[in-house]
Each structure stands twice: as C-alpha cells, then as structure tokens.
C-alpha cells in the first residue's frame, strides 16, 4: 500500500534523508526507529505530501504523491509530531472541521466524529478548548483527527508520546486492531512498543535505512541482549 523508493531530502546542502526505500502492505505495522535527527519525521512528511522530496518517489495505494498529492492525502490519516491543532477550538469543533474537510458534510459528520471521540476517549473533554488540554489529551486529539475518516493508511509520528501508561496500552491495542485492514507506519523511541505491536522494524540512522526486518530477526542479532543494547550497537556512530 505504501511504496517508497530512493526517497531523499536535503535542507539546503545538509542531507536529512538519503535514498530510503521500503514497502508496507495491508496488515503491516511498521515501526520506524532511529536516533534523534535520523530523518524519521522527514520521511513521513514526504509520504504524506507535506514536503516535496529532493529526489525519489513515494506512492500510496498506487498513487504517486508528487503527481496527485490530494489523492494521497485522501487515503492517509496523519498524526504529525507533537500533534498540532487549532488551540482556540473545542475538541468537537476541531474534529467537525476535520470531518468537513474530509468530505463529511452536515449530518454526515456526526458518525465519524463520534467514533473518533469514542475510540480515543475524548468524550468527556469534547467541549473543552484544545489549548486548555493536558499534553496527553492533546496527543489524543491528534490521534482522533488522524483516524477520523477511517483511512487505509495511518502514518503516526510518535503516537504514544506524552500518554500515561494506561493510555499507551490502549493506543497500542487500538493501533493493532485498526491495522488488520490498514497499513500503519509509526515512529517511536520506545523499543518495547515495537516489540509489542510492530510486524516490522526499520531502523534509520543519518538518513539511511540500517535495518529492515521483523522484531524476531532484530532480537536474533544478539540473542539475550536488551533491545536498547542492539539499538545502541547499530547507531553508535553518532556518539
């Protein structure tokens, strides 16, 4: 469902992502790992059509994002890093705006908005303005916004960032459940999260894919070692 080939992006002369390629099928949950500044968010921004790649292509559902960006955006639910939202709106107003922008007009908005509120446990704060919410709740608003239109592809940049342990588990369970008929890409710094839900790991470092394998294969690199030890041995170049 997602096909990324040779994707590169430079800011000025500084390369952020260089020659990243991978595929994600329906049912896959791809865990994006890598040290800070590795290029995870940049890669996601290019797949969602927010950033234009310097070279290479990204296709979602067979549509090249450079050719038909709106066609790609229709199929994708995207949670940007740190979950930006219009702070002066209430949660309900915000989700209704997203629903309307995604083509649910008038009374049609009700069902998807309610579903999103229910799945992310936001019903109790639906009339509160977003800027007055705590960080975890803001994060949930971002998640609600991403899954509102029940997209075929979910791209989640650090979806559990700022959530309490209960919510982390909830969100992981939800992602796992949703993923059955979707393709999911998520980035995270929590290695247990990858172990718990991901069907595949991609580790990038300095803009390049270092590892692309299943969690079991990743663990098998150093049997008995903790995941963070394996992570450290693969990325220690920038220490």
């Amino acid at each position: 469902m997602i096909e990324v080939s040779n994707l590169s992006k430079s800011y000025g002369t500084k390369p952020a992502v260089s020659g990243v390629s991978f595929r994600v099928q329906q049912g896959d949950i791809l865990g994006f790992l890598g040290p800070n500044g590795a290029g995870k968010s940049t890669t996601m921004k290019m797949i969602t059509g927010f950033l234009q790649p310097s070279s290479g292509t990204a296709k979602v559902g067979g549509i090249d994002v450079a050719v038909d960006p709106v066609g790609v955006k229709r199929q994708v639910g995207y949670l940007p890093e740190s979950a930006p939202a219009y702070g002066e709106m209430t949660v309900l107003e915000f989700l209704e705006f997203i629903a309307e922008s995604r083509g649910f007009r008038g009374a049609d908005r009700k069902a998807p908005v309610e579903r999103a509120l229910r799945l992310t446990h936001l019903i109790t704060v639906q009339h509160q303005t977003i800027e007055t919410l705590s960080k975890g709740f803001k994060q949930r608003v971002g998640f609600a916004q991403a899954l509102l239109h029940d997209p075929d592809v979910l791209i989640l940049d650090e979806p559990t960032d700022g959530l309490d342990p209960n919510q982390k588990n909830e969100v992981r369970a939800l992602i796992k459940e949703l993923a059955q008929e979707k393709a999911v890409v998520l980035s995270t710094h929590i290695l247990e999260e990858v172990e718990a839900i991901c069907t595949r790991i991609i580790l990038i470092s300095e803009g390049k894919v270092v590892v692309d394998e299943t969690p079991a294969e990743f663990q098998a690199r150093q049997p008995g070692a903790r995941l963070d030890e394996i992570f450290a041995s693969l990325t220690k170049s920038d220490v």
Partner: peptide, 14 residues
C-alpha cells in the same frame, strides 16, 4: 509557528 500548517496541508485540498 504552531505547526498546524502540517495539518492543513495533509488534508485533501490544494
């Protein structure tokens, strides 16, 4: 500044 531009430009509109 607030990053909502990323939200706006990943909605299906030109």
């Amino acid at each position: 500044r607030t990053g909502t531009i990323e939200l706006l430009f990943t909605l299906p509109l030109t």
